[in-house]
Design a protein around this nucleic acid. Structure first.
Lengths: 245, 245
DNA sequence: CCTAATTTGTCCGTATGTATG
DNA sequence: ACATACATACGGACAAATTAG
């Protein structure tokens, strides 16, 4: 088999970071499950065609994330596997989906505000631009590790005080129920991937340079009337999105 | 308003690359649609809190991609906006989805081979590990720009010679029809995002350091028997995935 | 217990890339 | 274009801890 170049130089992305990303992916793919260890630094250096020092920088970054732990004389031990699978379906509910993958789900309300609808959001929600919306900003974690951060918009006339109910109940589904909305469905989802900005790095406690997947989605009641527009950013190296069609 | 830090230093990702990514995103978001130009270098330098040289490096990279064109004395002109929307549904068909977004869709067969099923692929296709599969490697483009590259696996006993039929017909759907399979559905899709490797950079003609979204999917016949497993990598800055549930 | 092999940790120096002014 | 500072990457050498025999 031909030698396969894995990492590229002079790209504006440091080799150690590219290598860290590849190793993180291998860990979450279970490539090292047999031993529970990352291959030796010299083997990785050969595999990626770089100096051992460069591999060490990559491993140091992963150790910093708490993903691995190096022990002199023994090797580099995998502390934790990654990527929680997040299901997206017609009946997507945040908490339910993560189910047995994480023991404890935490959702924190960062803040809320009443804002006029911008053009894009107005179009998605089917309201006129400038109509009053309630904006909710949240961060969700699994077992203490941040997984996603979201901004959600709800029509203020239909769901007055939804921020307070969300804060009290910790769930959009339950807050909807207070307003007599017992069921709703996901009508559209769009996904893009990009580098995280400084805000997202801090909220999601990401190692800098990390990637986020951004899902823009609309939920509607059973009559098809939109009730929620949200922009959720998932930490790409902690999550995969499972589409259920 | 507090000063918002947009780019971060000492992250293993060069500032010029982070800035290039942000500008690319702004372009595809339509932030500069009023003028059709990128803001002046000095304005960008101030916005991102960096030296003008660094902004110039970022713009040079975007010019290299053909996204913008700098004209002395006038400014930097936006040549092209980005992100084709790719629909994923129970009846996902590659060519149909891109529809009116691109005038011309090109699919190129990179190669094919008969290979034994690895554990992961075998599980997805519901065959025993080692069973013979036909592997297809393809690249798809819209209006001459590479959008995605895929590796697909088909059970060799059920679809012998499917590679040749695909090469002749240019479509998996049509190749299936030759074997009497008139309809099939997407049963599962998983999406992760990561940095592109060297292979993907070259196949998708990406600027180095770019992000890919990888979708692992299984198609099955109407009896629920898997007929195809594929791993499609989308150029993240040229595509968004639209989930239709 | 001792030795050799393996593996991570630390130090040196040098060259190139990145970012500023 | 020049000068400066720091980050990245390489190469080599050796120390320290652990494992294999």
């Amino acid at each position: 088999m031909a030698l396969k170049k894995i990492v590229e130089r002079q790209t504006g992305v440091a080799l150690w970071r590219q290598i860290a990303d590849r190793i993180r992916l291998s860990i979450s793919n279970g490539d090292y499950d047999q031993t529970g260890m990352v291959p030796p630094e010299t083997a990785l250096a050969q595999e990626f065609g770089v100096n051992r020092h460069t591999v060490r920088s990559a491993l140091a970054a992963l150790a910093d994330e708490g993903l691995v732990r190096a022990v002199q004389g023994r090797g580099t031990i995998i502390e934790r596997k990654d990527r929680v699978s997040y299901p997206i379906s017609r009946r997507t509910r945040f908490s339910q989906g993560l189910g047995r993958q994480v023991k404890e789900i935490g959702t924190r309300l960062l803040g809320h505000a009443e804002v006029p609808a911008s053009g894009e959001v107005a179009a998605a929600l089917g309201v006129s631009p400038g109509a009053l919306l309630i904006e909710l900003r949240t961060v969700s974690s699994g077992d203490g590790r941040p997984l996603s951060t979201a901004v959600s918009y709800f029509p203020a006339d239909r769901f007055p005080g939804i921020a307070e109910e969300y804060a009290r109940l910790g769930s959009v589904t339950k807050a909807f129920a207070v307003h007599g909305l017992d069921d709703y469905v996901r009508v559209s989802t769009e996904i893009v991937a990009r580098h995280a900005d400084a805000d997202e790095l801090s909220l999601l406690k990401l190692s800098p340079g990390a990637i986020v997947m951004e899902a823009q989605s609309v939920n509607a009641d059973l009559d098809g009337k939109p009730v929620e527009y949200s922009r959720t950013r998932f930490a790409a190296d902690r999550m995969k999105l499972r589409i259920e069609t």
